[in-house]
Design a protein around this nucleic acid. Structure first.
Length: 292
DNA sequence: TCTATTTGACCTGC
DNA sequence: GCAGGTCAAATAGA
């Protein structure tokens, strides 16, 4: 599946390094917004809501840090400025920068291997650092675990839970990066899902496809989609969001407040918190849409 | 009984 | 030959 990046949304011509610097700058602004949001969220009196909101903010920060990290590695790859203190600082502030640097060689080797398909074509790969590797709305089935050289933690291998019945090629590698509380995980997604149509609004009332996890004991089956989202609008928006973010894996919801929270199982943000999160999302969306 | 997970063996690319 | 990725039999749990 080809990356979707409408040309009509592209920025006016600019050198790649200029565009990259602009994106870095905007991401840093986003990081500052996320930090402001975190401070506000900490004032929420209800413990449950506060923790849930903090987790959301943490995810946003992680996505931003991951994006910054990707851009920084691109800079190095293209021989631009050898160091970027601001970027490094921002990434480090979220706890992922150093870890990523330490495992950079392994990641590059992994990427190089997977970019070649059976006929030498490049495979779509997305990487991100996150504290919640399971929370990406898809249904995954674990098929392997491997101790990786010079890594403190084993790598876990997942494939789409509908890989058989719908020939969905999506795979996901998850590797814990540190012993922090909560720990950070490097998530590598390979291939796009072809099973989007499995999650229409009515999916809530339908049993899983034949042969799938009808009686899942679900200790490792990661399926948040059907439980989390029930409105057709939200599901449609989710897919649009994935399309926009395909080039730079930043999965941040962009539904309206009422739309998403009409479903019951998601942690709640106040309208004000929601507004701030949407502002961050628009930054991310703008640059994932026109960045190169 | 059925389905998912675990884990050692095997395969593949470098 | 090594390391990473995948397979598949054994196992666990609902």
């Amino acid at each position: 599946m080809a990356m979707r990046r409408p040309k009509s949304e592209m920025s006016p011509p600019a050198s790649p390094s200029d565009q990259r610097d602009a994106v870095i700058e905007e991401l840093q602004k986003g990081a500052q917004l996320a930090e402001s949001l975190r401070q506000q969220v900490e004032l929420i009196p209800e413990l449950g809501r506060r923790d849930a909101a903090l987790a959301n903010v943490s995810d946003i920060s992680t996505a931003l840090a991951s994006s910054l990290s990707v851009l920084q590695s691109e800079r190095e790859q293209y021989g631009c400025s050898s160091s970027d203190a601001a970027t490094g600082h921002a990434a480090g502030a979220f706890g992922g920068g150093g870890v990523r640097a330490r495992n950079g060689a392994a990641a590059r080797a992994r990427k190089a291997k997977h970019r070649r398909g059976t006929h030498g074509e490049q495979l779509p790969i997305k990487e991100m650092l996150t504290q919640t590797p399971e929370n990406d709305r898809f249904h995954w089935r674990k098929y392997g675990e491997k101790k990786i050289l010079n890594a403190d933690f084993p790598r876990l291998y997942y494939r789409c839970g509908y890989s058989n019945e719908h020939k969905c090629p999506a795979k996901k590698y998850v590797q814990q990066q540190n012993k922090n509380e909560p720990p950070m995980f490097m998530v590598t997604l390979i291939n796009d899902h072809r099973c989007h149509t499995l999650f229409p609004a009515e999916a809530d009332q339908q049993p899983p496809p034949p042969g799938s996890s009808g009686g899942a004991n679900n200790s490792q089956v990661l399926d948040f989609t059907k439980a989390s989202l029930s409105s057709a609008a939200a599901v449609t928006r989710m897919k649009e969001e994935e399309d926009v973010g395909a080039g730079m894996y930043v999965t941040v919801p962009s539904y309206t407040y009422d739309e998403l929270y009409s479903s019951s199982s998601l942690p709640l943000l106040s309208p004000k918190e929601w507004e701030m999160q949407m502002e961050i999302n628009s930054l991310l969306r703008r640059h994932s849409g026109d960045g190169s």
